[in-house]
Simulated scan of single mutants.
Amino acid sequence: MARNIPAAPSLKRSVQTIDPKVEIYIVCEGKNTEPTYFESCANYYGNGLVKVKPLPGAGVPLTIVQTAKDLKEKLTDSRNKQKIKNSFDSCFRVWAVFDRDEHPEVERALAIAAESKIDVGFSNPCFEIWPLLHLIEYGSQDGRHAVQKRLSSEMPNYDHERAAIIDFDLIKENFGTALIRANKLQAAREAENCIHGCPSTNIGKLVEKIVQNGKKGTKKL
């Protein structure tokens, strides 16, 4: 007589999915470096509560800011039509991320962003100074090539010419240290009455938003 044999219990764990509570749209200058880094930040610091949506390779600073401005207006109109209960600030944010580098009309781009209430992640001379501050205290007034070269020496897996991808695992535990160092640079530039001078970066403010919104029970954005 055939016996009813109970099915073996599944060895797969049930995975609880968490809907992101905050969406951060990041209009980037870079095609790989910045998008990959910010996605890693969201995955590690965001605890499933933060969704990063990069728009890579958006062009020069003025174009980046205009793209961010248009995107913000489009998203705001869309959500107003859907009658979403949450306010703009608690749902999403749009950031423009670009460098001083050798770009034209940087000051104009910064002014338009401020007027349009677009958050800006700005680095002078280049984005690479931010991951470098995770590894060393750096205050030299160097150009971007020197900063990128120094990052390569401190981060062996980074090669700006071949694979300009930040080794996130190497620096992920040093965010607090990097933020302190970046704030010191910013304070020095403010004392010189040149808040966007070299060297400086405020990318830490964007990462800090990811960290803060990744904590359950905290006020969002």
Rank of each mutant, 00 (worst) to 15 (best):
A191W: 01
F88M: 10
L185I: 02
K184L: 15
C91S: 06
S116H: 01
L179C: 10
K74E: 01
I112Q: 00
P125G: 08
N43R: 14
M155R: 10
E161T: 08
L185W: 07
E192N: 08
T76C: 07
T17E: 15
I166Y: 11
D70F: 02
N4M: 11
K184A: 13
T218M: 05
S10T: 15
I118R: 01
Q148A: 09
F88N: 14
G139Y: 09
P131T: 04
R162Y: 10
K209V: 13
I64G: 11
K69G: 11
P54C: 11
I166S: 02
K219W: 10
E161S: 13
G57T: 12
H145W: 14
R162N: 13
Y158S: 04
G204K: 03
I112H: 00
Q148G: 08
S200C: 15
Y138K: 05
P6D: 06
N124L: 03
G143R: 00
G176H: 05
A164E: 02
G204D: 02
P125E: 15
A42E: 02
K205L: 03
I5W: 09
T177H: 10
Q186A: 12
H134R: 01
I112W: 02
L11E: 13
K216A: 07
K184T: 06
K74W: 01
R181W: 10
N157S: 12
E29R: 04
P104Y: 07
C198V: 15
P56T: 10
K184W: 13
H160L: 04
G204P: 03
A111Q: 14
A182S: 02
I118W: 06
L133A: 09
A109G: 09
E128P: 03
N80D: 06
Q82M: 08
S123M: 01
S152R: 04
D99I: 11
V97G: 01
I180F: 12
I18F: 12
K72D: 14
V207C: 00
